[in-house]
């Protein structure tokens, strides 16, 4: 495509130009932290298979301040991913009841927050019961 005219230089710091771009970048960066967490999660699972002693040792290491801080970051990233993902549900998956569109809050609760809370409650309950 060849268009004439003056082309303004590419803006490398584009993501700092609008609050919406910053929010976008924070949302995208959650994937880096979630990927990191998933690897740690796999290590935890591998320790289960390695026997009780190895698992106890690994869990003891996880109680150190460094790992706890890392998990706080991972939790913030995972929660923010969930909030932004379910926040997009009304836009990405509109549900029509005849001529009327299901309102955004209801769509988010039915297809997002409701299942999320249920799944989280079951997972946590399983460990605490």
């Amino acid at each position: 495509m060849s268009q004439g005219g003056y082309r303004r230089p590419h803006r490398w710091a584009w993501w700092m130009e609008r609050p919406g771009y910053m929010r976008f970048m924070i949302r995208e960066l959650t994937s880096f932290f979630m990927a990191g967490y998933l690897v740690v999660f796999l290590v935890t699972l591998s320790k289960v298979g390695a026997g009780d002693a190895a698992f106890a040792e690994w869990v003891d290491a996880l109680s150190g301040p460094g790992w706890v801080a890392a998990h706080v970051v991972a939790l913030l990233a995972a929660v923010w991913h969930a909030v932004t993902f379910f926040g997009a549900v009304p836009q990405a998956m509109p549900i029509f009841l005849g001529e009327r569109r299901l309102s955004a809050p209801i769509a988010m609760i039915v297809m997002g927050y409701g299942p999320w809370l249920t799944v989280s409650a079951v997972v946590v309950w399983w460990i605490l019961r």
């Binding site: 967490y37 935890t44 996880l62 790992w67 939790l75 995972a78 991913h81 969930a82 946590v124 605490l128």
Partner: peptide, 22 residues
């Protein structure tokens, strides 16, 4: 994967990051 991560990963972090070591 976005759906799966949103539904499960926060709870997984709570379990393996906080409940197991505490």
């Amino acid at each position: 994967g976005g759906v799966m991560a949103a539904l499960f990963v926060p709870a997984f972090v709570v379990v393996t990051g906080f409940l197991l070591p505490a």
